[in-house]
């Protein structure tokens, strides 16, 4: 019975950590733009050097935001199995597609090539970078700030009849409820354990049995999610929520430092792509 009831502890995405660091105080519009640029740059960066630089920038941001490094890295832990499987699949089956450079080993359709190995390393690093960036962004920015930043950055699209506001609202709500559902999940897991459930004791190859064993978690969680959604709708409507013509309590005011930081970010992203 190896079980721990603390999903909430492993989820750093969507958690806000109050603080007064440089990153915390950065105007969220500029911060969002800068982080989007970084993530874009990391996505396009093909070389080892570029990715190492990306990782360095990442860690430097974590340091600037005064987030304990261990805590930021913990968020990666649940993603590790996916990363490994993804890396393995890419290593085995993508070699032929990226068949530039030396072929190390070949058997049937499995090709291990230099290009393939590079792809695996680069894409794993990319993934880590992106997750860290998103963690830093959400740890230092409240969801309301984030949604408003997104709203103001995407505003031009409203002219093209894109429902920007509804879209931003959806994202805010989704992010806001990640930790809530993690806590809810812990509660249900405990309640089921208290009446005899033991999770993770059925070997993985008995797929049907193993799937059935999580029904006691998944079904109540879905019920709660639907209930919550309904409550949220009612709460919003009873407070007169409309999607158009909304004003906000606080208005953005960019300071020079905010703009400077954005330029630093643009420079760094440029560097990443060309490295």
């Amino acid at each position: 019975m190896a079980e721990a009831f603390d999903s909430a502890r492993h989820i750093t995405i969507g958690q806000y950590m109050p603080g007064r660091s440089l990153i915390h105080q950065w105007d969220s519009r500029y911060k969002l733009a800068a982080f989007t640029l970084y993530i874009g740059a990391v996505a396009f960066c093909q070389s080892y050097a570029g990715n190492i630089a990306g990782l360095a920038i990442c860690l430097f941001t974590v340091f600037l935001a005064r987030i304990p490094l261990g805590y930021a890295l913990k968020g990666l832990k649940p993603a590790l199995p996916f990363l490994l499987i993804l890396a393995l699949l890419q290593l085995l089956f993508n070699g032929k597609v990226y068949a530039n450079g030396q072929v190390y080993w070949q058997y049937g359709f499995v090709w291990l090539t230099e290009g393939g190995v590079r792809l695996v390393i680069v894409s794993t690093m990319r993934f880590v970078d992106m997750m860290l960036f998103v963690s830093v962004l959400t740890l230092t920015t409240t969801t309301t700030q984030l949604a408003r930043a997104m709203h103001s950055l995407l505003r031009p699209l409203e002219k093209m009849k894109v429902p920007v506001h509804a879209f931003c609202m959806m994202i805010t709500i989704a992010l806001r409820f990640v930790p809530t559902f993690a806590l809810e999940m812990d509660k249900i897991r405990k309640a089921q354990a208290a009446r005899g459930a033991s999770f993770g004791t059925i070997p993985w190859w008995r797929i049907i049995k193993r799937t059935q064993s999580v029904f006691p978690l998944i079904i109540p969680l879905f019920q709660l999610a639907l209930q919550r959604a309904e409550q949220l709708i009612e709460a919003m409507e009873s407070r007169g929520y409309r999607s158009h013509g909304r004003t906000s309590f606080r208005s953005f005011e960019a300071r020079t430092a905010d703009v400077m930081l954005l330029f630093v970010a643009i420079g760094a992203s440029y560097l990443l792509i060309w490295l």
Binding site: A191, A194, P216, I219
Partner: peptide, 15 residues
């Protein structure tokens, strides 16, 4: 098995 706990809002755990 010998010690059971009925949590708050236990109706949420029925599946």
């Amino acid at each position: 098995r010998q010690v059971v706990v009925l949590f708050q809002q236990p109706e949420d755990q029925l599946f």
